Amino acid sequence: MQKQHLTTVAAVAALLALTACGTESGSGAGDGGSSVATDLPVTGVHWSVKSVTVDGKRTAAPAGAHVRIDDKGGAKGNYGCNQFTAKASVEGETVTVSGGAMTEMACPEPVQGFENVLRSAFQGELKGTLSDGTLTLTTAGGDKVTLTEQPPAPLAGTEWKVDSLTSGETATSLPSGTEGKAHFVFAKDGTVRGSLGCNSFTSTTTTDGSTITFGRVATTRRLCPGPEMDLERALLKAMAGKVRYTIEHRTLTLTAPNGSGFAAEAADVSAK
């Protein structure tokens, strides 16, 4: 009985040793072991779209085009003019994008053309490669979406470029011909200066929690075409007195008490 017991113990010990050997860290396919595939670390990151390459033709992205994939099966971002949401999952090196919805702002060319190209390429199963902060998503047909990681943007010191007007939860495109003209920077000393789309402006601000209070806004006195004046008036209304502001990573939204306002995108730091 004692001999049989010792034999059983020895057999169990040998089995445990064999199991441990088979799962030892560092073992791989070459020695009979298996490695666990890890997902690309792309979720929770603000990815600025740099370009889309279709049929060998590369098209640079407009400012503001971006993608953010979360770890709950969703993605959202901006195609360059319109905002979008979609379903998205990451498994190993494959990013799968499907379905979704988008806003319906009228976009000028060539932005509209870029949006169409990006929407087509950013769908289905995409093979992802990540190198030095650059993410490349490749379709089965060989088309590529190239993105770069962008850090969150602080309120002060960031160049904010106005890209839409807002009313409640609704965003509308800027007046035709004014795209990319309005921009501003909040300084750490509380001043703000920039362009309303035609005239330059400067003002003082006080920030308290989620509100900004603007002082008197001083502007130059240039005569501007109709659309530029429409944009200027809309921005001045949104900068009158105490307004609410939110920053979602690299998007700043200012909202006046009556619900009107505008959204602005942080300038691409990699372009400087």
Rank of each mutant, 00 (worst) to 15 (best):
V52A: 13
G74Y: 06
G99E: 15
N82V: 08
V49A: 05
S51A: 13
A65W: 03
G77E: 04
Q123M: 10
N82W: 05
F114H: 01
V45Q: 02
P110R: 06
V36N: 11
P41D: 02
K57C: 03
S120P: 07
A101D: 09
A88G: 02
E104K: 14
G77T: 07
C107S: 10
D132V: 05
T103S: 06
K76T: 11
V36G: 05
S48E: 15
L126N: 01
K87Q: 14
Q83F: 12
V42L: 08
G30A: 14
Q123P: 04
R119F: 11
D132I: 01
E91P: 03
V67K: 02
T94V: 15
G74D: 06
E115S: 00
G99H: 13
A88Y: 06
T96V: 12
E125Y: 06
C81H: 08
N116L: 12
A75P: 05
V49L: 08
Q123L: 09
D71N: 12
E115A: 02
V95R: 04
D71P: 07
G74R: 09
S34T: 14
V95S: 07
A88H: 01
V49W: 09
P62D: 10
T38N: 15
G77D: 04
S89I: 01
G99T: 11
A65I: 06
V97Q: 11
F84T: 03
D71C: 03
H46T: 08
A75N: 04
L130K: 09
D31W: 08
K72V: 03
A88R: 02
S89D: 04
E125M: 12
E125V: 06
D39Q: 07
A60P: 09
P41T: 01
G124L: 03
T53C: 05
V97N: 10
S120T: 14
N78A: 07
P62W: 10
G99Q: 15
K72G: 10
G73H: 10
S98E: 10
V67A: 10
E109A: 09
S131V: 11
V54E: 10
S34N: 12
N116K: 15
S35W: 15
A37I: 11
D55G: 09
W47D: 05
N82L: 06
M102H: 13
G56C: 04
V54W: 00
W47R: 05
H46L: 08
S51W: 03
D71V: 01
E93V: 13
K50A: 15
G128R: 08
S51Y: 05
M102N: 12
A121S: 09
C107W: 07
V45W: 02
A65M: 03
E104L: 13
A65D: 07
K72S: 11
G74V: 03
V111H: 02
L40A: 02
F122W: 14
G113C: 01
G73N: 00
S131E: 15
Q83Y: 12
R68P: 00
V117N: 13
N78M: 06
E93H: 15
V42K: 07
E91G: 14
G56Q: 06
K57P: 04
K72E: 09
G33L: 08
C81A: 01
A75H: 07
A61T: 00
T59Y: 00
P62H: 09
V45H: 00
E115P: 01
G56S: 02
A88I: 04
